[in-house]
Design a protein around this nucleic acid. Structure first.
Lengths: 219, 219
DNA sequence: AAGGGTGAACCTGTCAGACAGCCGGACAGC
DNA sequence: GCTGTCCGGCTGTCTGACAGGTTCACCCTT
């Protein structure tokens, strides 16, 4: 590990105190002078550390008043609808298929229960908007059950994007019953701990969804 | 618009020069003293502005040497330490391999140029911290060249996670020369528009990196 | 002539001190 | 009660200084 400079050290302390929630949003930090004294460094060093926090969006500094916490964690600057339909169709198999395989191997009983509930609820659901929400939750749940936070996060991203694309709703009417059946097959494979079958079932499901999306977009 | 301080103004100028590509990845900025003179401010102000750039992951500063550009855009989504090493090793092939294939088919001449610059800069670089920054930019650039924003975003995520894991730095000494060679092979395939070879080369590269990481973690 | 060592020049990291301008609150006067 | 003024605290910026890391040309040795 590279020896860190005093400024980096102070920055790390400040960041961890802010992110740990010890300093709530809206709280005022001590003055630069007193922070300097507290950490045994000069004011210049404190100012550089505070600049780093500000650059990350954790704090804002007001002339004559002080520095205030404005966020507990580095903001996720997610632009809804930033993904095109092609982006999604193209990327999802590469992410959700292996995630389904891992989910079959690693899912906890609680996660399995949640998936069952979701699938059951979807079967009896005919409100498109509700159904889409459940569908998203199903995919997100599989990603979480994969035990891999990368998959979990990217699927959450995809879910948010889909939820805000009107094409999704248009698609539901045609695809709902077929999807329900595909979901049951995926769930069955994950219940059985059969990773290979889970991957195949997810792959087929996404393929069918992709075709349906294409046909709507090209209509 | 709030009147901005001199430090903010200098930061904005530096950031725009870096993000516009006027200062290529790997380039060295002028010294703090000459930047101060150039913008008509004191060195303290320049240092605060540089800290902001560093906090955003655009630059790294090395004692006695200078400040160097390591990325030309700000990652949207800083997720410090969110992913475990296993998460990353497991997920990366599923995302970066297809991304490399798409990049071979879709890369623009400009993107190709940037990749060449990064690879060239890496060859002559022996400072681990700078090299890691360039390596991250290379992977991020491939993801962007894939033309798929899902891949672009998730690789940016991974990049930030890796940049803040100390294991990454420990790994570099052993892997640097081998990685340079692997990067050249990936770049060559993307230059040639050969998607299959690009996928294979990226797959081998990630496999090697994964093994190196494992050996460090289990040591 | 090749090679190795050394020092000067340059760079960043940090410090102390200073002053102007902004802000909030206390306080006196109306 | 309202207002205007003043003061103490805070940030924004500057200056000058010194320590320690880095580079490279130059010189001495071999």
């Amino acid at each position: 590990m590279a020896r860190l400079s005093a400024a980096e050290a102070v920055f790390n302390v400040l960041r961890s105190e802010i992110e740990s929630g010890k300093l709530g949003v809206g709280a005022k930090l001590s003055s630069e002078a007193s922070l300097a004294q507290q950490y045994g460094v000069s004011r210049s060093v404190v100012r550089e550390a505070l600049r780093s926090c500000t650059a990350l969006g954790l704090t804002v500094t007001k002339t004559g008043r002080g520095t205030f916490v404005v966020a507990n964690h580095v903001a996720k600057d997610l632009v809804l609808g930033q993904y095109s339909a092609r982006d999604l169709t193209e990327a999802r198999p590469h992410i959700e298929v292996p995630a389904a395989g891992l989910a079959a191997e690693r899912r906890s009983p609680e996660e399995l229960d949640t998936m069952r509930e979701i699938v059951a609820a979807m079967s009896g659901e005919d409100d498109p908007e509700v159904w889409v929400g459940l569908d998203s939750s199903f995919h997100a749940m599989i990603a979480r059950a994969s035990g891999n936070k990368v998959f979990e996060n990217v699927v959450a991203d995809i879910r948010d994007a889909l939820a805000h694309q009107s094409e999704t709703l248009n698609m539901v009417a045609d695809r709902q019953h077929a999807s329900d059946e595909e979901h049951r097959r995926i769930l069955a494979a994950i219940e059985a701990g059969d990773a290979a079958t889970a991957r195949i079932a997810m792959s087929q499901h996404l393929h069918a969804v992709g075709i349906a999306l294409d046909s709507i977009l090209n209509a």
